[in-house]
Design a protein around this nucleic acid. Structure first.
Length: 477
RNA sequence: GGCGCUAUCGUCUAGGGGACUAGGACGGGGCCCUCUCAAGGCCCAAACACGGGUUCGAAUCCCGUUAGCGCUACCA
């Protein structure tokens, strides 16, 4: 058996949505798992809505996710000649026919059918046109489309995720394959391209199930065996409706901006509508590739709920090596208008590594940088706050408030610890909770993991900034 | 309306006739951790849509009902 060839074929009419991203991911995972080839094809035939900017966003999004293609990107718009040739071949072989009906006539027929409560099916009136009549219309330059002649018989296939699915030809109608301007309609273009690119497995969204019988008919009429189809379930919003813009962030770029790590996104998306079986949740890239099979794909739609994504992101964040974390944090601070470059953060890393200075010292240094930006943190810094942890949480606030009594010049660890103990007692807090935000920074305690320490320090820095403010206030008062 | 797909905790899911007192994870609630953390540990609440079959036995197989979703264009 030859290696599979799969493709992801987005249309550049919007951003890369999580649904599309997941479809791409599944195709990529399948290709990697089977040693196959992953082809990227941009379906830009809808000239009205397609833009280069959107194409770039899609390419960037896939790159960010780590989904790299083996062939392409190909642009469907470049294959118009082949599409037309296929349509004309079908016409010549009597498998398709010219339709001279105007859009208005068709709309009227459709309206009538709907008013009568029935389904609209093209009545094939143009197929009954005699040769002289056709010649006359051609002569007069009447515009026409080419319609595919769909036989009334069962069309069924063994779907890799749903099992056998079948349609009756009589429920479908003679659909248009070539517009009057000579460009191909989606169903023809896809089949023509998938044949030309020798695609063996079509892994795409559930919403294409109803297109599949038409495409299978086209494959056969064109003299080719249809590929294996795998229709993956839709992704829904939290209200159970098809995911759309009104559900908030649905483009992968949105999550990139919120500090979601690509690995976390990839892991989360892979588990949306697919499961390796068992209890595994956190799966590295190579494990995903090793475990991925079409059989593991779910039949029912999945709700896109970012709560678990955020948890998963935390898992990946804490596992990230310091070397990768520092640039990430620096970039994030920078993006928020806080002037922290990698160079600024370097002393922090050094201190943590060397343990030569107390962490308090380090923390204060960072705090200076954070302090002037607190106003910004309140507004658009939500993502960072989440990222930097619970330094802003209620227990800190309570502890800080109680610390107001502290004299301004007693910034040594021990009195603060004592105070914290009192705070805990007074407020019926657990000591651990009360001192949690400042513990490491104040005691300069040993650390087990430099990576975690770096972020802890930044946490504490923010906490310290506040504590100092409080202390200063009470000192002057 | 027609056609199609789907149906396990709020969410992601495991399960594929007896191992089910239906498991895990997120989220929620509670408790523990004074060398940290976005972490960890322990406990609790929380689901097989409904009705019929088949079978000694059904979350698992079949049929129906209901509900949700998708498609129903000279869009993709």
């Amino acid at each position: 058996m030859t290696a599979p060839r799969v493709r992801f074929a987005p249309s550049p009419t919007g951003y890369l949505h999580v649904g599309g991203a997941r479809t791409a991911l599944f195709n990529w995972l399948f290709a990697r798992h089977t040693g196959g080839t992953f082809v990227l094809r941009i379906e830009d035939t809808d000239r009205e809505r397609s833009t280069d900017a959107h194409t770039q966003v899609i390419l960037d999004g896939l790159g960010w996710l780590g989904v790299e293609w083996d062939e392409g990107p190909f642009f469907q718009g470049e294959y118009g000649a082949r599409h037309r040739a296929d349509a004309e071949r079908l016409l010549a072989e009597g498998k398709a026919y010219r339709c001279f009906c105007t859009r208005e006539e068709l709309d009227a027929q459709r309206a009538r059918a709907e008013a009568a409560g029935g389904a609209f099916r093209y009545d094939r009136r143009c197929r009954r046109l005699g040769a002289p009549e056709i010649a006359a219309r051609l002569e007069s330059g009447t515009p026409f489309t080419i319609r595919f002649l769909l036989e009334d018989s069962e069309i069924a296939w063994e779907d890799a995720v749903h099992g056998r699915i079948s349609f009756q030809g009589r429920d479908l109608d003679d659909f248009v394959i070539l517009r009057s301007d000579g460009t191909a309609i989606y169903n023809l273009a896809v089949v023509s391209d998938d044949i030309a690119m020798r695609i063996s497995h079509v892994i795409r969204g559930d919403d294409h199930i109803s297109n599949t019988p038409k495409q299978i008919a086209l494959y056969r009429a064109l003299g080719h065996e249809p590929p294996i189809f795998a229709h993956v379930p839709m992704i829904l919003g939290t209200d159970g409706k098809k995911l759309s813009k009104r559900h908030g962030a649905t483009a992968v770029g949105d999550y990139q901006d919120e500090g979601i790590l690509p690995a976390a996104m990839r892991n989360f998306l892979a588990l949306l509508g697919w499961s390796p079986g068992g209890d595994r949740e956190i799966l590295a890239e190579d494990e995903l590739v090793r475990l991925f099979t079409l059989e593991g794909i779910q039949k029912k739609p999945a709700v896109f709920d970012t709560t678990k994504l955020e948890w998963m992101n935390g898992q990946y964040l804490s596992a990230l090596p310091a070397a990768e974390l520092v640039p990430a944090v620096a970039r994030e601070l920078e993006r928020m208008g806080i002037p922290a470059t990698e160079r600024d953060l370097a002393p922090v890393v050094d201190a943590v590594k060397a343990r030569s200075r107390t962490l308090l010292e380090v923390a204060e240094r960072v705090a200076v940088r954070l302090e002037p930006s607190r106003a910004q943190l309140d507004g658009k810094g939500e993502a960072l706050i989440r990222k930097l942890g619970p330094a802003f949480s209620a227990n800190l606030t309570r502890a800080a408030d109680a610390l107001e009594k502290l004299p301004g010049d007693s910034w040594t660890p021990d009195p603060i610890l004592d105070t914290l103990k009192q705070v805990a007692e007074t407020h019926a807090l657990k000591l651990g909770d009360a001192m949690q935000p400042v513990r490491v920074a104040l005691t300069g305690s040993t650390v087990s993991e430099p990576v975690n320490e770096l972020l802890s320090v930044i946490d504490r820095a923010a906490a310290l900034a506040r504590l100092r403010e409080v202390a200063r206030r009470s000192a002057t008062a």
